[in-house]
Design a binder for these strands. Sequence first.
DNA 1: AAAAAAT
Length: 511
Amino acid sequence: MPISDIEIVTPPETEDAPQPLFSELGLSAPIQQAIEEMGYRHPTPIQAQAIPYILMGRDVLGVAQTGTGKTASFTLPMLEILSGSRARARMPRSLILEPTRELALQVAENFVNYGKHLKLTHALLIGGESMAEQKEALNRGVDVLIATPGRLIDLFERGGLLLTQTKLLVIDEADRMLDMGFIPDIEKIVSMLSPIRQTLFFSATMAPEIRRLADMFLHNPKEITVSRPSSVASTIETGLVIVEEDDKRRALRKLLRESDMQNAIIFCNRKRDVDVLCKSLLKHGFSAGALHGDLPQSLRFSTLEAFKSGELKILVCSDIAARGIDIGGLSHVFNFDLPFHAEDYVHRIGRTGRAGRTGHAYSLATPYEQPLAEAIEKLTGKPIVRLEVKGIDQTEWSDEPRPRGRKRGGKPAEVRTTPQAPAPTGKTSAPSRKPAVESRNAVAPTAVSATAAPPARPASPPRHAATAHAREEHGNERPQAGFGGDIPAFMLLPRRTASVIPTPEDEIRPD
DNA sequence: AAAAAAT
């Protein structure tokens, strides 16, 4: 039996305060029963704090990110509030706005799960899917409308729905909506609603611009903060490999093979690179699927499901999945590229190291990306441990500008032709099974070395009270997750003796 | 500089 089947029990909370129970939050029997059937007894902090205020009819400003139980903190009391009466045709009683289709689907799932003993209806209004079905659902009358802004406005302008009876509004992931330029849409949508309503507003951060929006949309809100805006969980082990662009895929494969990866998300900065990397991994025999916004909706959904169910071990994706999407139990997160924004690093690697388990977050960087790495270290206040992967040429940070010429994802400087004879139809690209050179020899612990980068400068003073509070509460002074006693498997492998011959697969380029 | 979202 694999070791991973041993259940790791999270150490009990050391605080003296008794854990609250769902039964104390004022939710009715059918909802409590559904919660129980889902296997939950204790609400998370944001649920325990927000639910009573939402049930009182108060506006709520929640500063929280994924993994905190944020979604249920509004779906549960909404079910309670809505369970009293029935919906009328084309007049949804509540509206939830989400920045991405995946998140909208996730919230809808939540409603199905917790509302299974209630007779409430919902409709999902997202792009990329048949509008006819969505219109039909609206005509039958819905209690909960879950939407991405574009499709909602489109349907509204076609006269498919009225929002005058919508008395409960949820704006989820407001900071992301801002990043994505959705705020004018949101303002437009809010102006279509009755000013007499209850509004719940959630954001992972509380930047001044978000605060301004909250002031605009909310009336005397109860503010609840449970996030850790820029901290890296102490259960995440991080590492950084500096390689040239052309060595990235090889370095990644080595990391994938030699770490004890169970399931992993690999983030790329560009959609095109998601496709290329995914194809390359498949050619090398990995179980991988791609997810980004240019793929058809049906594929996006089925890939995500296949990954959640464990059918796919690796999900290669753009930042579409960096925030919000709640996929539990990931052993590894890889950054094939360092993210452009340091905050995205925190969001990305926050997919691992959940529930007290050790997670692994390894990043690849080219020599010219020192500024990105420094921005991340400055934001998190922690150095990222440097990893060296043997058998792959590695360099130091370079002061030179990135060499001009071929830009990844761009057009090659010169037309490349495949030197191999054209493959006849049929399977010629079976994954090349390389001899397991590594496992032949005795273990040499220094094959891969880790060196801590010089400590980052102290983090700049927090910009606002919420950040300061969260830092104080959760602390930057937590012990650094290092490698003591828990050295990743790939670090213990001996130096590869055979010279590494690049495989043809390494040369694949987008057509 | 890139990703997301309406067709």
